[in-house]
Amino acid sequence: MPKISVTVNGTSYSHEVEGRLLLVHYLRDVLGLTGTHVGCDTSSCGACTIHLDGKSVKSCSLLAAQADGSSITTIEGLAPEGELHPLQVGFKEEHGLQCGFCTPGMIMCAADLLEHNSTPSEQEIREALEGNICRCTGYHNIVRAIQSASGQLETAAP
């Protein structure tokens, strides 16, 4: 079995893994980081989106062994303990989530977008979310959450 060393959310891990183990199952089953979800089996839904060496990837689309030597951020590590990332705030403030299952993937995908484009237009946001499926929100408030996180909305008063 291949041995891998990875850094996840700032902590180093070394494990022997089955060759066929997907990265998403490594994160969920071996490390217990269950915030990264599995919503499909065709790399289409984006619920498993994480950051691998700073880039947003679908963690079901690569093997754990392929992640050897890399640095990974999951939803649990997006913000320092006890703090929230602006996107996490945006999703809460704008009601960008309902059942919450797609939410970690949405946030990780949006974080990558904002890294490259700090003030995306509505159309750019919608296109950036093309690989992430939400069944609850109709995307309306997800778009607003990202606009809010990028300072493009006046946060609505409660």
Binding site: L84, F91, K92, L97, G100, P158
Partner: peptide, 18 residues
């Protein structure tokens, strides 16, 4: 009133328990 959801915190931080 549009009170922000109390359940959101666990979901946005990856701590929902499905």
């Amino acid at each position: 009133k549009s009170i922000k959801r109390v359940e959101d915190k666990r979901f946005i931080t990856g701590h929902g328990r499905y």
